[in-house]
Design a protein around this nucleic acid. Structure first.
Lengths: 197, 197
DNA sequence: TGTAAAATATTGACACCGCCAATATAAACC
DNA sequence: GGTTTATATTGGCGGTGTCAATATTTTACA
């Protein structure tokens, strides 16, 4: 028998929302459809989310958490700084390719005061890369320089590959190359070794 | 007196749509509001656009055209390849900061068969950068190597800075630096000179 | 020039949406 | 046990994309 109180509606809604998002994009994600799939009334979600944007922010936050897990795992399986940077960036891009609609939500402008935990989890993701660069510098595998600027240069490159890969998913970003790792490897090598003659 | 036939409704709608998009984001862009502002009935837009997506694709296409103009102009005002790359990337990022919602539409996945002219204009934008790299190689200011891969590495970096700047507009991507050009200059130098020790 | 055809715009409708208000039910607390 | 609080429901409002049918204007051709 159906109980009046769902028990764990917030989590159930988030799971459903993430599914809807992955299946048909953000335009197909509606509070009413979420409620219907969860077997509750069309207004039940408003007990757990202030509005639709709050749902999107929660999905984005969860995305940063999952991204951090994958990037951290990838880093731990590589030895040199160069290989770690390739591994981390590959994980970043693969995550984007596996969750394109979620990643789009992750990099939308949100009100920081409304969603402080979102900012927190996004900064945690970036911090993984920062530590990588810092250790690389200490190991003398990277040039000494402003760690933060170097981190953001690498981040920008990985993020650019990720977002462009999403936009041009059908035709590979780098024709001829097959895997994400090969593609990323080329770009990270460019960044580490430089393009100037 | 108001005429039954508008005369140039398609262009008028596109102008209005671009305004609505810039003002309040894609969620505030509705066919009905466009029609209302243009002074036509709520179904008149369907004479000129198959559906809402077609409007978004048209806005994206126009965006690539404007981007090309600005990037080309920036390139022509710089001398060395390094300065041209900085100028082009700065123009790219500034365009993104000036038209954030439009840029988001420009880098969504579209059906290539539905919007062939959109693909065309986007490739034209990328070609500007490709030519820049190729000439840089010929002038021996860039290393010899796969021109396409190098182009896309630079593109990815510029695009990453652009999209991250949009997402984190409020707090500058690079605290301490002020202008976009300074920020970009740092990153392009990273890419040209390399980060490996 | 007159008329048929095509292009353009309108009215009306439907299902869906986010969100608000009022109400009902269940749980928690003392 | 009774009150307070959290949770969920019903009902409704204005807005949205899109379809169908209709009306008007322009174009094209005889």
């Amino acid at each position: 028998m159906a109980q009046y109180h769902h028990g764990n509606l917030r989590n159930a809604l988030l799971t459903i929302a993430t599914e809807l998002l992955a299946e048909d994009g953000v335009h197909a994600l509606s509070l009413r459809k979420m409620a219907q799939r969860a077997g509750v009334s069309h207004n039940a979600p408003y007990m757990h989310f202030a509005d639709k944007e709050a749902v999107l922010a929660a999905i984005a936050e969860e995305g940063f958490r999952e991204l951090s897990v994958e990037v951290e795992s990838a880093i731990s399986q590589a030895s040199t700084t160069r290989l770690q940077l390739i591994a981390a960036s590959t994980a970043y891009v693969n995550f984007a390719l596996n969750h394109p609609n979620q990643v789009k939500l992750m990099f939308c402008p949100y009100d920081e005061e409304k969603y402080p935990s979102l900012i927190e989890s996004s900064q945690a993701s970036l911090h993984l890369l920062f530590d990588l660069v810092k250790i690389g510098q200490e190991k003398r595998e990277l040039i000494s320089g402003n760690t933060q600027e170097m981190t953001k240069a690498i981040w920008a490159m990985a993020h650019g590959v990720a977002t462009l890969s999403i936009a041009y998913k059908t035709n590979n970003l780098l024709p001829g190359k097959i895997s994400t790792e090969e593609t990323i490897s080329v770009f990270i090598d460019c960044l580490l070794d430089g393009l100037a003659a």
